[in-house]
Nucleic acid binder design. Structure first.
Length: 476
RNA sequence: GCAUGGGUGGCAGAGUAGCUAUGCAGCGGACUGCAAAUCCGCGGACCUGGGUGCAAAUCCCGGCCUGUGCUCCA
């Protein structure tokens, strides 16, 4: 089954055919680092992390570029408020981004270009747009003139120029600036007081929001590239603007072969937003659960769907994750990884998993397959079937680990188990002594005393479970 | 208003025509002094009105509801 992905421009799932055989160039719009990253950023990063992992697994050589918009109104405002340099604000939030992404097992992109390091390329692109007759200089900057390429309007949103004119309810009728037309958008903003700025043929200023991505994708991926991604909230105006800029500058279309967009996050049925008070940063979430539990939660729905996020969902994911990790760890401590290719069960799990991923990266279908292999592994552990245990952990390592990114390194898992065993042996004598007392109490049907001992153990963090072959205990 | 997605059991969420999705929760059972864990089993859904088909959650038409975008936003 070949890979199909949903392309926003054609509004259908299309079979993926790269421009260059065996290679993929993918550009993903990254964050504006004006505050610590929130779970919407996490969802986006995770979606594209898995997309890139799957493309690589499928044999493509992938060049993955994600940018940082490290100059912007909000960054400047915060810097002025704190009386520090704007780059300090950007850098501290970029550091935060890298840190939390790494905790969630997000593989780094191949490059992270920044606006402030791309100024010459941006200027030359604007220059080209002016000489092509697509942009004009005015009193407060340089603007792209939509009327110079009206046929390009609405390729992603399906809207036409007329629709926007009629439908916007008067909100956008005034230009309020040096624009010729309210639909035009800024390529270069002339510097105001107390603003960082760069020299340009049009005076001191800074780039408009959209031009950076056109310039950076051109620089890193060339005049045509395969995939452009980002959050669905960027479709308009940001990605529409990119189409105008890139295609008019380069004189060909399409520059981007496939546009893909991830869905937003809802919290308790409402859009997550600061004003509603239902806002989660990534650090909020990972103070409650393990970062990989958060990862599990955010990839549990296909990337295009809005995802429901709340405490219940987090807890649910946490249970699933614990089940995966503990079963995998058990298997890992029993034997080495072997090959899963000779196991009928695992081979069919492979087919289901791959079909799901090839159908527009359906991680939900993939996770169902992981769950079924976890169940299978438990059975094999029960039956002491070393060959299948070995094959199953290998399968999980490849798919749950390698593709979905849900497993920490084996050494970490084994070290955890080892640590837990040490902690257990440190209290073993004490626990066994109490369990003996409990046994005596139970033998004489002194249930009150037996339960009292079990409660004491609970308070020590020891969980006791009676099994047919005697009590089993573990640490919380 | 315009555009673009979506409406599946208590919850999350697959499924583009015929065969149990799955997980959590619930119920019943096994095992238990009890509890927990585990295992087995069960029930329960396809927004609505038409249409096409031997057969529709799945295709077509209408209606209703809803998310998102139209302003900075992953």
């Amino acid at each position: 089954m070949s890979l199909r992905l949903y392309d926003t421009r054609s509004r259908t799932k299309r079979i993926f055919e790269p421009l260059v055989d065996g290679e993929v160039g993918i550009y993903v719009c990254g964050i504006t680092p004006y505050s610590p990253s929130h779970i919407g950023h996490a969802r986006q990063a995770l979606a594209f992390d898995i997309i890139v992992r799957w493309l690589r697994y499928s044999g493509f050589k992938v060049n993955h570029i994600t940018n940082f918009t490290d100059i912007d109104d909000k960054i400047i405002a915060i810097a002025n408020e704190e009386e520090i340099d704007f780059l300090e604000v950007a850098n501290r939030n970029i550091d935060d981004y890298f840190e939390v992404m790494s905790l969630m097992n997000v593989l780094p992109a191949d490059a992270y270009p920044r606006v402030t390091e791309t100024i010459p390329e941006i200027i030359s692109m604007i220059d080209k747009l002016i000489s092509n007759g697509n942009a004009y200089q005015s009193s407060d900057g340089v603007y792209f003139e939509i009327d110079s390429a009206p046929e390009k309007y609405g390729q992603l949103t399906g809207q036409t120029l007329e629709m926007v004119q009629e439908g916007a309810g008067g909100r956008v009728t005034e230009t309020g600036s040096g624009k010729k037309n309210h639909r035009d958008f800024a390529l270069w903003k002339s510097a105001k007081e107390n603003e960082p700025s760069w020299d340009s043929p049009w005076g001191k200023g800074r780039p408009g929001w959209h031009i950076e991505c056109s310039a950076m994708s051109l620089e890193y991926l060339g005049e045509k590239f395969d995939i452009h991604g980002g959050g669905s909230d960027l479709i308009f105006p940001h990605h529409e603007a990119e189409i105008f800029q890139s295609e008019c500058c380069l004189n060909h279309e399409p520059v981007v072969q496939y546009w893909i967009h991830n869905g937003m996050i809802n919290v308790d049925g409402e859009k997550m937003s600061k004003s509603l008070g239902n806002f989660w940063t990534i650090r909020d979430a990972i103070s409650k659960v393990h970062p990989l539990e958060l990862r599990y939660c955010l990839i549990n729905a296909p990337y295009r769907q809005p995802v429901e996020f709340n405490d219940v969902m987090l807890e649910d994911s946490s249970n699933h994750y614990q089940r995966l990790i503990s079963t995998y760890g058990q298997g890992l401590s029993l034997c080495d990884k072997g090959s899963w290719k000779n196991s009928d069960f695992l081979e069919s799990a492979n087919i289901n998993f791959s079909n799901g991923m090839n159908d527009d990266f359906n991680t939900r279908v993939a996770i169902v397959e992981v769950q079924s292999v976890v169940k299978y592994l438990k059975e094999q552990i029960e039956n002491d079937n070393i060959k299948e245990i070995s094959a199953s952990i290998s399968w999980l390592s490849d798919f749950a680990g390698g593709i979905l990114g849900l497993l920490p390194d084996d050494e970490i898992i084994l070290k955890e188990i080892e640590k837990n065993n040490q902690a257990k042996s440190a209290v073993a004598d004490l626990v066994n002594d109490l369990l003996n007392q409990r046994k005596i109490a139970r033998d004489s049907k002194n249930w009150d005393r037996a339960d009292q001992i079990r409660n004491e153990l609970n308070e020590m963090g020891v969980i006791v479970e009676d099994s047919p072959s005697g009590p089993i205990w573990r640490l919380e």
